[in-house]
């Protein structure tokens, strides 16, 4: 109970600070728009092509935009040495990880939920036909991105080129999650049900999230304290 309350305090702090400046979320959303726009030139957005590549397109946009939010997550603690005060407080590293992770999750999901209808309009896709399963994919995929991204945000926060470093390190680790999310999203956006062999991707997403969340919970203290 105490643990959860501390998690929520950290999450609320990050969200409130973000809402005051809207730095990360504005940049992230603008970036998602630009990438969506650019990708429309990469191929001819006819109905058929779009159906084939919608999953890949969406998750590339989500991952790029999400990275901007993740970069800010620990960078926010740098001015005034705020991280010291967080570490000094009687809050376990796992609670800090979950607190910051949840805040990132909410922000990235918000960007995704705005980007998705924009995608639908630009690319002329009726993406709502499998709405709830698609939301499940969004939640699972985004949590995978967030859990790894939050730890790696802490790893790279003191590096000179952290804006480049974070995606460089995070994207390769994310590949299995992205494969699953892309495949499932492509099916669901096309209005198909996920059946048979394809359900393996849901299992993959669940497994990926569980494995890397546990690993992050265990290793966060080490990352913060050395």
């Amino acid at each position: 109970m105490r643990f959860l309350r501390q998690v929520m305090v950290v999450t609320a702090k990050d969200l409130r600070a973000e809402m005051r400046t809207k730095e990360a979320i504005n940049a992230s959303f603008a970036f998602a728009l630009v990438v969506l726009l650019l990708l429309s030139f990469a191929f001819d957005p006819t109905e058929e092509t779009t159906r084939d590549i919608s999953g890949g397109l969406l998750w590339i946009v989500f991952t790029f935009a999400g990275t901007l939010v993740l970069n800010r997550s620990f960078a926010r603690e740098l001015p005034n040495d705020c991280l010291d005060a967080l570490i000094a407080a009687p809050v376990p590293g796992a609670a800090l990880f979950l607190g910051k992770g949840l805040a990132n999750f909410v922000l990235i999901l918000a960007v995704e939920l705005v980007a998705l209808p924009v995608f639908g309009i630009f690319y002329n896709v009726r993406w709502t036909r499998q709405f709830w399963p698609l939301m499940l994919v969004l939640v699972l995929g985004t949590w995978g991105l967030t859990s790894i991204g939050t730890v790696f945000s802490a790893l790279t926060v003191n590096i000179r080129l952290r804006e480049v470093m974070l995606p460089l390190l995070v994207y390769p680790v994310l590949i299995p999650m992205l494969l699953g999310a892309m495949r499932l999203s492509a099916l669901l956006v096309a209005g198909q049900e996920v059946t048979g062999d394809e359900t393996v991707w849901f299992k993959l997403l669940f497994g990926f999230d569980i494995i890397f969340t546990s690993l992050s919970l265990v290793l966060m203290d080490t990352v913060l304290l050395g």
Partner: peptide
Amino acid sequence: RRIGFIGHGIAVYDEL
């Protein structure tokens, strides 16, 4: 909880 620390930075959030 028994330790109070002041470092080089003020360790409070500018946006709050």
